[in-house]
Design a protein around this nucleic acid. Structure first.
Ligand SMILES: [Mn+2]
Ligand SMILES: [Mn+2]
Ligand SMILES: [Zn+2]
Ligand SMILES: [Zn+2]
Lengths: 129, 129
DNA sequence: ATTGAATCTGAAATTCAATTTCAAAAAGAG
DNA sequence: CTCTTTTTGAAATTGAATTTCAGATTCAAT
């Protein structure tokens, strides 16, 4: 299974930054990886609380930040004011088409668009995200 | 000058919706059109206050909404939590490359990208924004 | 094991843009 | 003018995100 490898990546990141591998961080990590959706912090917090009601929301915020830094999670902006996060590890880059009315979305990639975007970015000194 | 035409558009929109053409709405309209930047509400509010310190921030919010509905303004999302607005009337569609670190941005369009994006949207039943 | 320092946690407070509320002011109808 | 509707803006509220800080936990050195 892939999960062990991601866990290794997380553990590696924490070691590198001399941070501790705590119960809370492990639980949040597990809950996050157990989904394949685009979670808000609140939604992840709910999941975590089902497993351990004592984990604080603040820690969820903080751990998601760590997961992003470790390239395991990726912040995705769906236009609203709530940040959402998806699993990045093991998932190819993709774009989102989001309905501005109802929030419905789909994931899609067009290689030609990506290529042209890369060129456009390079031309202006930006690095595609 | 172009401004008269835009003003006509605004007035027309207000008439259509049976809304009044007030001092405040006129002033906010003028201040907004006097810039060619990507203003936050706060920034526009500052401009308006210089002309008339009695106008309230709430009215700036409300009027920007009207300007968007009238297709004179366009909300642009630069990734932060502050909404920004640019003049839409008389400006061609364009995309923004935004630096996620410093916020610096440039406007650019690539016709081929646009075309492919349109196709991609159509394929999935979305309407490009 | 004991101690002391550093790290981590989570409730609570704070921030800040955005929205809502509501009473007063202004505008329009008759 | 009088009555009704619309508009306004100060103040209150919301809600996600961040900050604060005292207590809990972990780690290292004895
Ligand atoms: Mn892409
Ligand atoms: Mn475009
Ligand atoms: Zn996705
Ligand atoms: Zn622009």
């Amino acid at each position: 299974m892939k999960k062990d490898k991601v866990m290794d990546l997380f553990v590696g990141y924490l070691r590198e930054k001399v941070l501790q591998i705590t119960k809370q961080r492990e639980e949040i990590f597990r809950c996050f990886l157990s989904t394949d959706t685009h979670l808000s912090v609140e939604e992840l917090y709910s999941l975590v609380r089902k497993k351990d009601p004592k984990v604080g929301q603040t820690t969820v915020f903080r751990t998601l930040k760590l997961l992003c830094e470790a390239d395991i999670a990726k912040e995705v902006d769906f236009g609203g004011r709530v940040k959402r996060y998806e699993v990045k590890y093991g998932h190819k880059h993709h774009d989102h088409l989001v309905c501005t009315k109802c929030g419905e979305f789909i994931e899609a990639v067009d290689e030609r668009i990506e290529e042209l975007q890369d060129k456009l970015c390079k031309k202006f000194g930006f690095i595609p995200f």
